[in-house]
């Protein structure tokens, strides 16, 4: 089973910069046409098809609406699945230097410099996303994949900071 191309499914151009109005409009229109409620009383095959199409529209809308998921999805369409660890088609491994940098950041965090580290990482995550998008626009999928993987590392870091702040000490 292959994923249908969400851009085609939702009738928007296949690139990161998005016509939001068209996405919203097409999503609502197409969801209305294929929602399972419109097929109650019909045969099970038709009902199943409606459910599957609606599922895809919802999943596609969720993906395209989100700037990060949309970028990652474009990389996936380009042949690199960031959710996979396959050495050929999966997420590229970050460089040694990058990993060492992440360890340093963690140490700085442990030293208690939370606010400053946080701000820095937020900025780095944004930069990585911007660089990833720029690479996609140039058609350089491998480069985009590297940047988006870096962004994921930064994001996970931020999530951990949030979690540790919420935890009662």
């Amino acid at each position: 089973m292959t994923d249908a191309d969400y851009f085609g499914l939702l009738g928007v151009e296949r690139r990161w910069r998005l016509d939001r109005g068209a996405l919203e409009r097409n999503y609502l229109e197409r969801s209305q046409a294929s929602h399972p409620d419109g097929f109650i009383g019909q045969d099970s095959g038709t009902q199943r098809a409606a459910m599957e199409r609606s599922s895809q529209l919802n999943q596609g809308y969720r993906t395209l609406r989100d700037p990060v998921l949309r970028a990652e999805y474009l990389v996936k369409l380009g042949g690199t699945d960031l959710d996979s660890s396959d050495p050929r088609t999966g997420a590229p491994k970050p460089s040694q230097a990058f990993l060492i940098e992440m360890i340093d950041l963690r140490e700085r965090l442990a030293e208690g410099d939370v606010a400053a580290v946080r701000e820095e990482i937020e900025a780095r995550a944004e930069q990585a996303l911007d660089a990833g998008i720029a690479a996609l626009d140039r058609g350089e999928v491998a480069e985009a994949a590297r940047e988006l993987v870096a962004r994921r590392y930064f994001q996970r870091f931020l999530d951990e900071v949030d979690a540790s702040e919420e935890r009662p000490t």
Binding site: S55, Q56, R62
Partner: peptide
């Protein structure tokens, strides 16, 4: 808060 119906897949090893 994901809109339903929806499906999602995940690969485990």
């Amino acid at each position: 808060n994901a809109t339903i119906p929806i499906s999602a897949r995940q690969v485990f090893t």
